[in-house]
Design a protein around this nucleic acid. Structure first.
Lengths: 140, 140
DNA sequence: TATTGTTATACTCTATAACTATA
DNA sequence: TATAGTTATAGAGTATAACAATA
């Protein structure tokens, strides 16, 4: 097996492992707020109102699944569907409660021993930059 | 929200997103070989025979789930359970077919446009190093 | 008593396909 | 015809709890 192959595979394994650790840390931090990690990810993605399809891209899942997440966030009173100029489109937007909750959840996430606390600030910046290049303009 | 909080959250989001992209790329590459991405991850983890519990750690899942993965790999003829000196322990080991398959799958994974191809070799080395520090000695 | 692996079970995530309504 | 969102459904991943065999 060529070295390049092996590096790709180790990198993939490390990425998946690191993300699993992040997901679980995330999930633990947010479960006290009554949210699943998917709901929390959606919450953080809604700085601006987003079409459902845009949210699907952020969550890297099929659009059909966003319907459920949106339903859940609406039931919790954290987000609401709004009409858009193109009447096929629905914009999902945080409610005031949702924005408040997002900040509370964000504080919990950072407060607990998050995996990325093992890195210093400049390492985190480097890592973030590499990940963004990795994801690239058309990650999917 | 303090900057540090925000950086943690962006980093977590980027990591999860990157890993999702890797998982899907991985899954597409291995489905032609009749494997799920979990089965493929297990295959790559079995360079040396591993106790089921060790495999659970690599796959970052509960030990109870490894039973199913091991069953599947055994049914495919790719791995086998072997007794260990501690007779409570079962070692999962690749068969010859399993080792061959792992190399074939590895080639497929690298051959297709894998997300990490967007980075050059030295960037990949940097990324891998950061991820390993992130995971740390006791990532869970 | 504690630990390894197993079984049974339930919940979440995710994709596919068929549908509605708009464009 | 094509697109955004929805619904229904099925498969895969995951955790919890109770259990057997062994330490």
């Amino acid at each position: 097996m060529p070295d390049a192959d092996e590096q790709h595979q180790h990198l993939a394994a490390a990425l998946i492992h690191a993300a699993d650790a992040c997901k679980r840390s995330f999930a633990r931090a947010v479960e006290g707020h009554g949210l699943t990690h998917t709901q929390a990810r959606a919450l953080f993605a809604l700085d601006e109102p987003q079409p459902m399809s845009a949210l699907a891209e952020v969550l890297s899942c099929d659009a059909s699944n966003v319907t459920l997440v949106a339903d859940q966030l609406e039931q919790l009173g954290l987000a609401e569907r709004r009409p858009a100029s193109d009447r096929r489109v629905k914009l999902l937007a945080l409610t005031d409660l949702g924005a408040t909750r997002r900040d509370e959840v964000g504080a919990s996430v950072s407060a607990q021993s998050f995996p990325s606390s093992r890195l210093d600030a400049s390492e985190r910046t480097t890592l973030l930059g590499l990940l963004e290049r990795l994801l690239g303009p058309d990650a999917d």
